[in-house]
Nucleic acid binder design. Structure first.
Lengths: 199, 199
DNA sequence: GTCTATACGTCGATAGAC
DNA sequence: GTCTATCGACGTATAGAC
């Protein structure tokens, strides 16, 4: 199974994605060269092309994997055994925070480097993003219909809540003043309040 | 006063900033070349260096001017003649939306290109940003102290509200489904609710 | 699987003519 | 104030040796 030498196709491919993620998130896609990425993992620039068709594909793979992981993680999250919109919203908010907080780099490039995707790749990522937003949008729509939420516009509320939650990544740091649990509770309270959820 | 020829120092400098803003916001600082900017305003690349020391200074000037405009605009905004925290928060929210919505490009690069600032420049912009956030933070702290707001953590609430509001720029387009006034009212309601403001 | 070498283009910035 | 010409460095990507 494993190769005998210090090199291994799968392992190098993994290192390549890790190095690209690190450098893209720190310096930005356009500012990072294939030479830098190669240096980071200790190979020559030419060798990278054994693992990726080109730089653009490397970026797309990172974003695509991230969105697939996100959607799959939601699928596999146990759902509350209730139709109560407030409990469903709570479940979504807690999931969102717990998925996004430990993945700051991936979340960051998924937002910042969208414009560096070629049109076809951009469309594919956007489709996944809309699917994720649709989860929240459905919860808000149900809560509005049932009278549990006071929401003037479901689409706007969806954008507002996602922006609020994802903004957490810009300031949260491990070992800071607040624990993940505390932050989670604070944001949960604000989100529920913002849609007038009965508490 | 005005020069007689087709060229004019002040005017060219203005065109330079406008072209840089347009291209940086569309393609990103790192992806835009000085040659592209020069082509955009119809001069040669070398001529740009009459108006800016280098590319980095050009970026810093854009961000610095934007932050100065923001802080100055707030200074000049009439304040409600009341100490009611809800009215002060309303005033801030309306100001934020009306200032940011028509300046999508500047807001965008002020956030996206922060990492392309050299350390000294970054520190200066961050200082201005913190000053702006302090305005909201003070309002929330006062509202919490007076019992008008239910806010678990003032700093977190500040970040959450600014993220929610600024996120508007990622989706709002002129001539869309909702007018500025409608969007303003929707966000205002959500912000007030999120801090449990008495309404 | 990784290397060296290289093709070929573009970069930021400067020098000096006009 | 703008131009042309140019420097030296670096960019992505490929070819072919080992």
């Amino acid at each position: 199974m494993a190769r005998k030498s210090g090199s291994n196709g799968e392992e190098t491919a993994r290192q390549l994605r890790a190095a690209a993620l690190k450098l893209f998130s720190r310096d930005g896609y356009a500012a990072v060269s294939m030479r830098q990425i190669a240096r980071e993992i200790g190979v020559q620039a030419g060798a990278l092309y054994l693992y990726t068709a080109d730089k653009q594909t490397l970026l797309f793979d990172l974003l695509n994997r991230h969105m697939e992981d996100l959607l799959q993680a939601w699928e596999q999250t146990p759902k509350p055994d209730t139709t109560d919109p407030s409990r469903r919203l709570e479940s979504f908010v807690r999931f969102h925070i717990r998925f996004h907080l430990p993945r700051a780099d991936k979340v960051f490039i998924s937002y910042m480097e969208l414009r560096n995707l070629e049109p076809d790749n951009f469309a594919r990522i956007e489709k996944q993003r809309r699917k994720y937003e649709g989860i929240l949008q459905d919860i808000l729509a149900d809560g509005k219909a049932s009278g549990d939420f006071r929401v003037a516009d479901v689409k706007v509320a969806t954008f507002a809540i996602i922006a609020m939650l994802t903004g957490m990544n810009t300031w949260y740091r491990d070992g800071g003043r607040l624990s993940v649990d505390m932050v989670e509770q604070i944001y949960l309270d604000m989100v529920l309040s913002s849609v007038g959820a009965t508490r």
